[in-house]
Amino acid sequence: MTAGTVSDRPLEQPESASAAVHTEKLTKVFGSITAVDGLTFDIGRGEVFGMLGPNGSGKTTTIRMLCGLLKPTSGAATVAGFDVKTQGEEIRRNIGYMSQRFGMYDDMTVFENLDFYSSLYGLGGDKKRKRMDELLDTQGLRPWSGQLVGTLSGGWKQRISLACAIAHHPAILFLDEPTAGVDPAARRRFWDMVYELASGGTTILVTTHYMDEAARCQRIAFLSRGHLIAIGTSEEVTKQFGQPTIEEVFIELQRRDEGVTA
């Protein structure tokens, strides 16, 4: 990084890697079950990438491997240029993660949650205070800053959760069914926020069951039984399966899955 470059990103982020996320025959086996089987794909910087698939298709396992929480059985993956097998801690410093459970402490205030997670991402002193002020304002959380998170609705919890996940300006943001259980207005607002982050250069990997959300992604990947079945823009994917909509593709996939099970 050249001197004088203005960047909020952590310094250790390597410039060399072209893809934000890169996987190569990524595989995870639990006992006799192959949860993820030979996944190979790339996610470009600043891309909004959707991951779809029925429950148990291997989405969560994939995300866990990409976060450096689970060691792949075989294959390789890099996230922000770091090896998931050996550089879990570096990865976790450069990613944000938000799940449908929001992961906020109900018995702490909005401010305390934000303060806590900011501290865990290594922010401190003036830098932390400035960033927290910024997040409270941009997420519209200021009026609720002293409120216990447990007393707020799902939509607000979602905003706090997002604020905590991006406190450290992560290079990559993992969103695991982030809009489950929130109202349509909050969902729309959330996606506006996601696009804003992506336009700022943040790479977004999102899993969802909402087909309208899938359509908002620049590219989507379909997983089924641990395999990558299709990848591309939603037009490409629907064309590949000869279905009119992504929803039809999804249902068709689910049918195939169940056919195998039966």
């Binding site: 801690e89 799940s99 459970r101 992961g103 906020m104 402490y105 865990l120 991402y121």
Partner: peptide, 14 residues
């Protein structure tokens, strides 16, 4: 149970 553990382990905290 509340899912905060899941959130903690994806932060850099050891």
């Amino acid at each position: 149970e509340r899912g905060t553990f899941e959130q903690l382990v994806v932060t850099p905290v050891s």
